[in-house]
């Protein structure tokens, strides 16, 4: 694994009963870059995500995450919450999974759970009200406020997350993932359901996250977003990798075009033109 690689997936296989969802998939994501995972519906992209973030245990293969300090972590051996906690991999979901009955601010506070737990002496010190916890909480609120400002939701901080507009919820979920201060951010179709203006704002947000030094792995159907911001693209179909390269290389790849055309002509055309 080279210095520049943050995530390397090696011969990943995932079977559900007799169905092979992902087979012998290998790819790498570079540090401080945006890597996109694309492919027609049912290609196995979300399954790959679930394997990386520990929601599924892969049937075979290895997933390695290497941190800045050279630490290497075998993700396939960790449970879901440990991947987020120890390996610093954060994710969002295809169907938004916020805490709808909690405010936007509270959502971002929950994301800082592990840091705050330590500061509160695993609750006991916090219960008797030690000042160090108060300071830690203030810092947490500051971080949350910062992110609310970045996603332009500062004025909605005290509104229930469930009351926010769809596009706002999408951005809040990304901010929540970022509040865990991850090394790798995995986004599952962040642009789904967004209008053109919101998509553009999303691209901008993701580019700014990248320039802050967080690596991004992205599943996306919205080709305008993918082509605009990705540094590297991996194309999957029927559980296997069919192509990879820069946006330009992928766009011209005959196999990719065939994969999209093979599923549905109109969809393929629309997708390649950059629609949804």
């Amino acid at each position: 694994m080279s210095e520049e690689t943050i995530l390397s997936v090696d011969r990943l296989t995932m079977r559900f009963g007799g169905i092979v969802a992902v087979q012998d998939l290998s790819f790498a994501a570079e540090r401080k870059k945006i890597t996109a995972l694309i492919g027609p519906n049912g290609a196995g992209k979300t399954t790959v995500f679930n394997c990386i973030t520990g929601f599924y245990k892969p049937t075979g293969g290895a997933i390695r995450l290497s941190h800045d300090d050279g630490r290497q972590i075998a993700l396939e051996r960790l449970n879901d919450f440990r991947i987020a906690k120890l390996a610093k991999v954060a994710r969002t979901f295809q169907n938004i999974r916020l805490f709808p009955g909690m405010t936007a601010l509270e959502n971002l506070m929950v994301a800082q759970h592990n840091a705050l737990m330590r500061a509160s002496g695993f609750t006991l010190l916090g219960l008797i009200g030690v000042p160090t916890y108060g300071e830690a909480e203030k810092r947490a609120i500051a971080l949350a406020t910062d992110w609310l400002r970045r996603i332009k939701l500062l004025d909605r901080a005290d509104d229930a997350a469930g009351n926010l507009a769809y596009g706002d919820q999408r951005r809040l979920e990304i901010a929540r993932a970022m509040c865990t201060e991850p090394a790798l951010l995995c986004l599952d179709e962040p642009a789904a359901g967004l209008n053109a203006r919101e998509s553009a704002a999303l691209s901008e947000l993701l580019l700014s996250i990248r320039s802050d030094g967080t690596s991004i792995l992205l599943i996306e159907h919205d080709m305008s977003v993918v082509m605009e911001i990705s540094d590297h693209i991996v194309v999957m179909d029927h559980g296997v990798k069919i192509a990879q390269g820069t946006p330009q290389e992928v766009r011209d790849d005959a196999k990719v075009i065939a994969a999209y055309l093979g599923t549905d002509e109109e969809e393929a055309a629309a997708v390649m033109e950059g629609g949804t």
């Binding site: 973030t53 879901d80 919450f81 987020a84 954060a90 999974r97 805490f99 759970h113």
Partner: peptide
């Protein structure tokens, strides 16, 4: 599920 994704 979201809790687990946040490392809780």
């Amino acid at each position: 599920v979201a809790c687990r994704a946040l490392g809780i």
